[in-house]
Amino acid sequence: MTLRTTATLAAGLISALLALAALRGLPFGTVLFWFAPFPLFAAGLAFGWQAAAQAVLAGALVTVVSGGVPGTLAWVLLFALPVVLLLRLALPDTPGGPLALAMPFATLALWPAAMLLAAEFAFAGQPGGLSGVLRAVMEHALARMGATPEMGAEDFVAMMVRIKPLAFALWFAGVMAMNAAIAQRMVARRGLLIAAPARWSMALLPGWYWKLAAGVVVAALVVPGGAGFAVQSAAMMLAVPLALQGLAVVHVASLGKPARPLMLAPLYVALVLFTVPVGVGLAGLGVAEHFLNLRGRPPRPGTGLTPPED
């Protein structure tokens, strides 16, 4: 058995087991769940996106046997398919070429947004659509905890329903970016990386992305009802990569400065405490990066540092 075949099978098996650890409620299962994409990224960065796709097939067999159809769908939709798509978009056609990070960066929001719209269609027949389903789930969970209307449970439920899509988009983008970066570093150290290493902090969204996000934001202001919830949620999701791009600008601008920790620590504290307003500010900084090149990216069209604008 070749190294590629062994690594591919192992990647699919380990990824599936990490996901099943959470689905079966094992100790530290939630933590392990976060690292389920890592083996797939490692296999793809070492042997190509086709290897990651083959690993997915091997992992799907494991999840079907041990987790059933629901567990398989959760693993495939949350991790397996997006990892293969990200690798397909990022890896160069010629071995040793640079990673293209523009479209993968955009996909960090486009995939959750697509899942949101699919869920909205799936629950269109339910009272209130997707937002109604989320509200019912939250109310049931709070009722089991003993919460009552007098305790402000209704207001809490309404707030949680509004921010759930944003929270999912933040989680998805963070998990995917973290696992991809760790996998690249590990594979590169072993001399197996089939592409030139990329500096993730220099990734730039495609030029059309901010226009799409702005269009969805405008639509969110005028679309009412259940459709309005979906559009508003999509607008928040699409803002996540822009905010990450703005955060990257701050990181790059603070490099080499003695007071860098004092600059970044308050920013992250503010981001945790005031996620929406600080995130909006970072998203605006991310949009400005398209026009002002605040990070001083070198003019290298077609690479991960300066991707094509369309």
Rank of each mutant, 00 (worst) to 15 (best):
P308H: 14
A243D: 14
M115H: 11
N179R: 04
G286C: 02
G246H: 06
P301C: 10
W34D: 13
A11W: 14
L77C: 15
L193V: 07
N179Q: 03
E139R: 12
P39K: 15
W171R: 13
G225F: 10
P224G: 07
F33C: 05
Q50V: 13
F168V: 03
A235V: 07
V280L: 15
L101M: 08
L20R: 05
A167I: 05
R199Q: 14
E154W: 07
V76T: 00
R144H: 03
P104Y: 13
P224L: 09
V272M: 06
M186D: 00
V240S: 02
G12H: 15
A143Q: 11
A270C: 02
A188I: 06
G152Y: 00
S233G: 15
P197R: 14
R199C: 02
G279A: 07
A114I: 05
V187A: 01
A114H: 14
A183F: 12
R260E: 03
P95S: 00
Q232G: 13
P266H: 08
A136Q: 04
A19L: 14
A22E: 02
A265L: 03
A214L: 10
G128C: 08
P206E: 03
S201F: 10
Q50F: 13
A169V: 10
G96S: 05
F168C: 01
A198V: 09
M151I: 00
A42M: 05
S233L: 11
A253H: 07
A7L: 15
A113H: 10
P299L: 01
E289D: 09
W210S: 12
L192A: 06
A102E: 01
L255T: 05
P241F: 05
P308G: 13
P266T: 09
A188H: 11
T148Y: 07
A10W: 04
D155I: 00
A74V: 10
A248P: 07
Q50W: 04
L247E: 14
P197M: 09
G152E: 01
A213C: 11
T6V: 04
A51I: 15
Y209K: 02
I14F: 04
M236W: 14
T6R: 15
A109S: 03
G68M: 01
G129R: 08
T107Y: 04
A124V: 14
R4P: 00
S131F: 04
S201M: 08
F156Q: 03
G281D: 03
L9K: 04
R189N: 13
A22P: 01
P37C: 10
G59T: 11
I163E: 04
A259M: 01
A220Q: 00
L73K: 06
V69Q: 15
L170G: 14
K164M: 13
H251K: 11
P82F: 11
E309L: 12
S131Q: 03
F121V: 12
A58P: 14
H140N: 11
M237K: 09
H290P: 05
G96K: 01
G29C: 05
L264Y: 10
L212V: 09
A243G: 05
M237Q: 13
V252M: 01
M145C: 10
V133L: 08
L262M: 13
W200K: 15
A53M: 12
L57H: 02
W171Q: 08
F41L: 15
A143N: 14
G174C: 10
A239Y: 06
G281M: 00
E139N: 07
P298K: 11
V223I: 12
L294F: 06
G25R: 05
Q184L: 09
L262Y: 02
A147R: 15
